[in-house]
Design a binder for these strands. Structure first.
Length: 431
RNA sequence: GUGGAUGUAGCUCAGUUGGUUAGAGCACCAGAUUGUGGAUCUGGGGGUCGUGGGUUCAAGUCCCAUCUUCCACCCCA
């Protein structure tokens, strides 16, 4: 029995999860990223550096009696803060640092479907450039991961915090109330424009004209070229917003050139992102067939986070939530196939044949065939194991075969069985 | 963290206003078949009814607590 929000992954599920991570890693390397690994446990002041409110979700780590020091520590709740720490602590890293990392993180929130207390994040980050080209590369990278997993029906929605930062100026409300306003905008997709409209109109922080200006922005909602030009007009007087719009325009051009299909991305003013450290472009990805699972992959630019640790470098990153992604794919029956378990099972008829069977298994493995040597000389059980394990071939040998120098090769998919000379087994099973 | 549902065999579930040794299908195991799985037949094992208390002559059924999973809020992958 596991703790609430913590789970075991039995082989069938674990194999598929690892397959997804494998695709993620390969794609990252194809995009020129290098791996990074950091500890699960971090000093508390590092984790809580950016936001005191995060305290509520950070797991406390008591440490052992033996270690005895009073350092307060906790489990990492994301991979971005540790990355920022590493970057700040290692000034000799390449000026342009592209790293990927897949590993567990912990958050003490109430579990729900696709939402756990321990979950794996697959992160790709680019440190050392302010160019929106980097943000576009991250979106393209994750698009590639989706494509390789045969997921075509997904949508990356992109916004820029700089545009949202122009809202107080545009609508005429105090900047300190922006977080409240953003919380309302964030619910646009979930609750719909009518409810958001009344929420804005009823807000204590907003005058009627202010609410009206915000609604004007909301009506543009999402789009690509038209969206950009509409916002350019609305935010004509705001320098920050214009800067943000310009960055998105460049991102958009790069996405088009990268070959990301137009139906897979859009700009959307209601994408906010809760984490406070975002400063520029932000993105969220949902599976169109499973919108109720929410964002399975998201991220954004955090140009000032490394500064918190003493070395100021711009950075942008994206993160695929493996567990939620898996839960969503499972729900829409789109999980990738995973090859795990033996392709061939070698079965000895009698104890005297086990050694020769072991030798045959070694040969098959030498030929890259995933092979189990059935450890007992019981044909019935060996075949049952082979079937249950999903193996394609059963290779049976006993005294008769040993004297003839042959092996019985049974194709478990068709039930066909034939006598094959020992030397040819590799070509039959391998091909 | 707040509010609300849920929990019976490995899985999906049934179980009548509390009333004898708690059932079904699938799965599993054994035999028919001591060198051949998946079909068929016959037989079989398996549940302290999530856990712990309480009410009652009697609790799967009622009450309380606790845990799990799920839903909403919050937050987010």
């Amino acid at each position: 029995m596991t703790l609430s929000g913590f789970r075991d992954y039995l082989p069938g599920e674990a194999a598929v999860r690892q397959e997804i991570v494998r695709v993620f890693r390969e794609t990252c390397e194809l995009f020129g990223f290098v791996p990074l690994e950091t500890p699960a446990v971090e000093r508390w002041d590092i984790l809580a550096k950016d936001r005191e409110t995060l305290d509520v979700i950070i797991y406390n780590v008591q440490g052992s009696k033996e270690e005895g020091d009073g350092t307060k520590k906790g489990l990492r709740f994301d991979l971005t803060v540790p990355l920022s720490r590493v970057v700040a602590a290692n000034p000799n890293l390449p000026r342009l640092f592209k790293r990927y990392q897949a590993g567990p993180v912990w958050r003490g929130e109430r579990p729900q479907a696709g939402r756990y207390r321990e979950f794996i994040q697959c992160d790709a980050d680019i440190v050392g450039t302010r160019s929106p080209v980097a943000d576009a590369e991250l979106v393209r990278l994750m698009g590639r991961v989706f494509e390789r997993l045969n997921i075509r029906e997904y949508l990356v929605r992109i916004n820029n915090r700089k545009i949202l930062n122009g809202l107080p100026e545009l609508a005429g409300f105090a900047g300190e109330h922006l977080p409240e306003v953003l919380r309302i905008l964030d619910k646009l997709e979930k609750e719909g424009l009518p409810r958001i409209t009344s929420a804005l109109e009823e807000s204590q922080f907003l005058s009627a004209p202010a609410a009206g200006r915000i609604l004007e922005v909301l009506k543009v909602a999402s789009g690509r070229e038209q969206w950009l030009s509409a916002l350019r007009d609305i935010f004509a007087g705001s320098g920050v917003a214009q800067e943000g719009i310009g960055e998105l325009a460049e991102m958009g051009r790069m996405l088009v050139e990268s070959g990301l299909p137009a139906e897979n991305w859009t700009f959307d003013i209601s994408i906010v992102r809760g984490l406070a450290y975002y400063t520029g472009p932000v993105f969220e990805t949902t599976l169109l067939k499973c919108p109720e699972m929410g964002s399975v992959c998201s991220g954004g630019r955090y140009d000032s986070l490394t500064g918190v640790f003493g070395l100021n470098k711009p950075a942008t990153g994206i993160s695929l939530g493996l567990d939620r992604f898996y839960a969503a794919l499972d729900r829409i029956q789109a999980l990738p196939a995973a090859h795990a378990g033996p392709a061939a099972v070698v079965i000895a008829v009698d104890p005297g044949s086990l050694a020769v069977a072991g030798n045959l298994a070694a040969d098959l493995r030498e030929n890259q065939v995933r092979t189990t040597l059935y450890p007992e000389s019981r044909v019935r059980d060996g075949l049952a194991y082979a079937k249950a394990a999903g193996a394609r071939w059963a290779l049976i040998l006993g005294e008769n075969e040993m004297t003839q120098g042959t092996v019985q090769v049974k194709d478990l998919a068709t039930g066909e069985q034939k006598t094959v000379p020992r030397a040819q087994v590799g070509s039959v099973v391998g091909g």
